[in-house]
Amino acid sequence: MTRIRFPDFLLVGALFLLGLAGAGGARAATQTHTVTNYLTHCGGCHGIEGISGRTFVPTLRDQVGWFVCSPEGRDYLVRVPGISMSLIRDDQELADVLNFVVFRLGGSSTPTGTRPFTAAEVHKLRAQPLQTDDLMALRAEVLSRARAACPH
Rank of each mutant, 00 (worst) to 15 (best):
V142L: 09
A120S: 07
M85G: 15
G19D: 07
V68Q: 07
Y38E: 13
R79M: 07
V142D: 03
I48G: 01
V80K: 12
T30H: 03
R5P: 00
H33E: 14
R126C: 09
D133W: 01
A95L: 08
L130K: 04
A119P: 06
I88C: 00
E121H: 01
D75S: 15
Q128E: 15
F103Y: 11
D134Q: 05
R115I: 02
R104I: 15
G47E: 10
R74A: 06
T110H: 06
D8I: 03
Q63D: 05
I83C: 03
D62I: 12
F103T: 14
V142H: 01
V35Q: 14
R147D: 12
L39P: 00
R5L: 10
L94I: 05
T32G: 03
H33F: 12
A95M: 08
G43A: 02
T59H: 08
L39W: 02
P151C: 01
G65K: 09
Y76I: 15
T36I: 02
G82H: 01
L138S: 05
S108L: 04
I48V: 14
T40W: 08
Q31M: 15
M85K: 15
D133S: 06
R147K: 15
R61G: 01
G47Y: 03
Q128F: 10
D133N: 06
V97M: 10
D90L: 02
M1P: 04
G53Q: 09
L77Y: 05
T40I: 08
D91K: 06
L135S: 00
L135I: 14
R61Y: 11
N37K: 02
Y76D: 14
Y76L: 13
T36H: 10
Q31K: 02
G25F: 08
L20Q: 15
S108I: 10
K124F: 07
R145W: 08
H123G: 02
R147A: 15
G82Q: 06
E93M: 02
V57N: 08
A119G: 11
I48H: 01
Q92M: 03
V142N: 03
T114E: 06
F117W: 12
V102R: 14
L18D: 12
P129A: 09
T36E: 10
Y38T: 09
V102W: 14
V78W: 13
I83Y: 07
E141Y: 01
P116A: 09
T30M: 03
P81E: 06
R115E: 12
G65A: 12
L135A: 09
T2P: 15
G65H: 06
W66T: 11
S109M: 03
G107V: 08
V142S: 03
G73S: 04
R54M: 11
